[in-house]
Design a protein around this nucleic acid. Structure first.
Length: 863
RNA sequence: GCCUGAGUGGCGGAAUCGGUAGACGCAGGGGACUCAAAAUCCCCCGAGGCAACCCCUCGUGAAGGUUCGAGUCCUUUCUCAGGCACCA
């Protein structure tokens, strides 16, 4: 072997070896335990960024580790190739989205290979290819026939200048990002998937996922938001009744007004001869559709001049239009109980509407001018209904049940389970996506495209200017015939939400080339044993992913209820952002192009452009993204240090699930470690072959050295297996190597111990730095099978120590260190502790009240 | 605004089930080797006190609490990050 560590040559040799051995191509083998390790596939944005490197290194480490446990490991990779950035790039660079996307994929594949990730590329999917998306079109048409798909109006962000629909991301401070126009809400017809039909199952299924983080399950539970409440009506003279849903029927006697959305038919009717109201409704429609915006904007309203009839008292309650009530979510109308709902309270104070207290808690004083949290506390043990006639004195549950009974009896209302989860709107008015396989016929209405006519192919060789989708602009593409009556008809020109593609790629990976959605191979590989991806996908993607699995199950394509057994949510790689501002438009500057000045304490003072020294503003620390241009290009580091060093550092920098503020400076330490490792093995190997280990004849120093090795192996086994935390495993190896450096023993058995140590170190590092360890394993053993070697396991008999170090506390404070025999009794341990000089000083004349011995750890004397 | 997390030296982080706070590494300081540099090796490195190894006091965003003992559990609070349904 070479004396110096030369990553470039070492990495090429290892990659060539794997490539010619087709080392990562796998097939179904029922005789072996399978392990399907899946990292979320990337959007082909151009280059890999640090978040990708970290994510994919974690997946590769896990895959290689599982392989070293003897499992049949599948680790596929592909590209989530449809999406908005391709359209933006097309406008900016005047290239077709397809061309841009394919070029990016080629470059990123080469980067992934350079990092040594063990993917089975024979299974690659590119979601923008018809041979991929035809199967999701097929699934959609099946769901359509099954009644799980419907069309309704839904609101979008409308840019009145560019005459286009904007993504939420494209709305910046209420304005279109390119035109600067104030964004409006606009209703257009869109296709929806009935995810709410699966809401209960998606909720219950979370309990079957012990391998998913609690935080993700909690977020999904809250997102699904199951509630039980009462649905009832307010009669309105001369109009349809207002249907409302409430989880607080117990407060019904506190209703002092009702509120409807600006788009509600009642509001529109009232505005017909009320120009002031019409103006308000128009203005209320001026806002984006994002929930965060709805929740934080100023709550405004205006009375319709129409009264609703309170269903119990018969009293008239005014109906208001309010900008925070959205049409299309529920019935577009809400009852308002300002006495016990914080938002209603604030609204009532603002507009001078009456506030009626109907809940009291003993010892608390109700104050009409100031909101207090107890007003809304329905589960307080002292909570009682007041000012509500027959309901007075009841608690929340009693009043709830009494009200439900009252409404169900006369049929004017009913108990209802409601979900916060809304049906999934899958229509996008964009070009670069999978065409929705629907045909519109004037006679027969919307028809699914027949299966033998799939796929509906998206043309790729197009001019894309950004104003209008090429398939919307092209009248010929649209033209078709109705599959039902054969008459002239038109195709849907909207495309799917790109979450569609990423909802089922995991299944497709199991069945490359299948002439159906998946084939029987899916039953061998599914479910995914380990799914790895960013925490930012905790709700949307992971919910759709679970939903799709159930849809595919119910269509008979896959078995089992959940798509992935274990989930690791990788923390975000974040980085400071930098920008310059001109005419209110921000230009984001890459951190690599910015020089930062720090004060004496290391806090950043100012930033300037590296090229010309012009000042740059410092923005927040955010996840690395294309839009904020704060991604660090890992290629620079790979070129300088090699893939193994980058992989090692990515794993060493922080635990996988923690977010990481990226900083290059530690990479030097990882490079140093690689050189030490290489030199250590080289020095050992250069002395010739070691003799066989004979544990019966070891000296105490050799035994201690071996104990250190096997303690380390025990720790590392736990880190890899149970904890899935690699930074501490690497630290343990570093610590062991520091100990080895001090172990100078050229005797035959000393060298035998060293042989065992170096083999172990090389194998435990193999999943993390596979190229270097491939070469080192060859040097140590003459074999090329590091990939399939068994992961080292600790020998517990080597770890037994005769003397154990304990600490002694007095009243919980550390006062001394003692050593006791392994076999010492509690009384003997306490006696030794009490004999310690410093301990005696702190006990003084006092008699110990309590003596606590924690085996293997400490003694605490309480006086 | 709501939901979910996270706050520990100059920096990344460790402390796994309530039991030695700061492992391991980076940066920094000192030294060895060298004509010199790089590389490498050794030592120091939370704050304060002490002549001093020892040892003592303080210290895990902040304020309280539970406990023999709290970075870890509870309450309140601040800050930051992720998500909020058309970024992926």
């Amino acid at each position: 072997m070479n004396q110096d560590y030369e990553p470039r040559a070492v990495e090429r040799a290892a990659q060539d070896f794997w490539h010619s051995a087709r080392a990562f191509e796998v097939t179904e083998d029922p005789s072996r335990e399978k392990y399907y390790c899946l990292s979320m596939f990337p959007y082909p944005s151009g280059k890999l960024h640090m978040g990708h490197v970290r994510n994919y290194t974690i997946g590769d480490v896990m895959s290689r580790y599982q392989r070293m446990l003897g499992k049949n490991v599948l680790q596929p990779m592909g590209f989530d190739a449809f999406g908005l950035p391709a359209e933006n790039a097309a406008i900016a660079n005047n290239t077709a989205p397809a061309k841009w996307t394919y070029a990016n994929i080629e470059y990123m594949k080469q980067q992934l290979d350079a990092l040594g990730f063990g993917y089975d590329w024979t299974r690659e999917v590119q979601t923008c290819r018809p041979d991929y998306y035809r199967w999701e079109q097929l699934l959609f048409t099946r769901l359509m026939k099954k009644g799980l798909v419907y069309r309704k109006n839904a609101v979008v962000n409308w840019d009145p200048i560019d005459q286009t629909v904007l993504a939420n991301e494209q709305v910046v401070e209420g304005r279109g990002w390119r035109s600067g126009a104030v964004v409006e809400r606009r209703e257009i017809p869109q296709w929806f998937l009935k995810i709410t039909a699966y809401a209960q199952e998606l909720l219950d299924g979370l309990d079957q996922l012990p391998g998913w983080p609690d935080s993700v399950k909690t977020m999904q539970r809250n997102w699904i938001g199951r509630s039980e409440g009462l649905e009832f009506q307010f009669a309105i003279e001369g109009h349809d009744p207002l249907i409302v849903y409430t989880t607080r029927p117990d407060t019904i006697m506190g209703v002092t007004y009702a509120a409807v959305a600006a788009e509600h038919p009642l509001a529109l009717a009232a505005a017909a001869n009320n120009p002031e109201l019409a103006a308000f409704l128009k203005d209320a429609g001026r806002s984006g559709v994002a929930e965060a915006e709805m929740e934080t904007m100023e709550k405004r309203g205006m009375p319709l001049g129409i009264d609703a009839i309170h269903p119990i008292t018969g009293a008239k309650v005014p109906v208001w239009a309010a900008n925070f009530v959205l049409m299309g979510y529920g019935s577009g109308a809400v009852m308002a109980v300002p006495g016990h709902d914080e938002r209603d309270f604030a609204f009532a104070l603002k507009y001078g509407l009456p506030i009626q207290q109907v809940v009291a808690i003993e010892g608390e004083t109700y104050d009409l001018t100031r909101w207090q949290d107890w007003y809304a506390d329905k589960l307080h043990p002292q909570m009682r209904i007041v000012n509500s006639g027959a309901l007075d004195g009841l608690n929340y549950k009693q009043a709830f049940d009494a009200l439900v009974q009252r409404f169900e009896k006369d049929g004017t209302g009913k108990r209802r389970v409601n979900f916060r989860l809304r049906d999934w709107g899958v229509s996008r008015q964009r070009y670069w996506g999978c065409p929705i396989p629907v045909i519109y016929c004037a006679k027969c209405d919307a028809q699914p495209v027949p299966e033998d006519q799939l796929p509906v192919v998206l043309p790729e060789d197009v001019e894309f200017t950004g104003v209008k989708s090429p398939i919307k602009a092209d009248p010929n593409w649209r033209k078709t015939t109705c599959p039902n009556c054969g008459g002239p008809a038109e195709r849907e020109t909207d495309t799917f939400d790109t979450f569609f593609e990423s909802s089922w790629y995991s299944a497709r990976f199991t069945s490359p080339g299948a002439q159906e959605l998946v084939d029987e191979r899916a039953n061998y590989w599914l479910p995914v044993d380990q799914y790895i991806g960013g925490i930012e996908h905790a709700i949307l993607h992971l919910l759709y992913f679970r939903f799709f699995h159930k849809l595919m199950r119910d269509e008979g394509f896959v078995k089992g209820d959940e798509p992935a057994t274990n989930l690791l949510t990788q923390g975000m790689v974040v980085k400071e952002t930098y920008f310059t501002e001109k005419d209110g438009k921000k230009t984001w500057i890459n951190p690599a192009d910015v020089l930062i000045e720090h004060d004496a304490k290391g806090h950043p003072l100012s930033a300037k452009l590296a090229t010309d020294g012009s000042p740059v503003q410092i923005g927040g620390v955010e996840k690395m993204s294309k839009s904020k241009n704060n991604g660090i290009d890992p290629q620079v580091l790979i070129d300088r240090y090699g893939a193994d060093t980058v992989r090692l550092f990515a794993m060493f920098a922080s635990p996988p699930d923690a977010s990481l503020e990226w900083n290059d400076s530690g990479v030097e330490g990882a490079a140093r470690f690689m050189r030490r490792l290489w030199r250590g093995v080289h020095t050992h190997v250069a002395q010739g072959p070691a003799t066989a280990l004979d544990i019966g004849v070891l000296t105490p120093a050799q035994k201690t050295m071996r104990a250190a090795l096997h303690d380390t192996l025990a720790k590392i086994g736990d880190d890899y297996g149970r904890r899935k935390q690699y930074n501490t495993a690497i630290a343990a190896v570093m610590e062991l190597m520091n100990t080895v450096a001090k172990f100078e023993d050229g005797s035959p058995q000393g060298r035998a111990v060293l042989q065992e140590i170096w083999e172990s170190i090389v194998l435990v590092l193999n999943p993390i730095v596979p190229h270097a360890t491939h070469a080192l394993w060859q040097a140590l053993t003459g074999r090329s099978d590091a990939l399939d070697a068994r992961f080292p396991v600790a020998d517990d008999t080597a770890r037994v120590k005769d003397v154990i170090a304990l600490v002694v506390q007095v009243n919980g404070k550390l006062r001394g260190h003692i050593e006791v025999a392994r076999i010492a009794t509690q009384d003997e341990i306490i006696a030794i502790a009490l004999a310690d000089e410093n301990v005696r000083k702190f006990i003084g004349d006092a008699a110990p009240k309590k003596k606590i011995v924690v085996p293997g750890k400490l003694v605490n004397i309480v006086v």
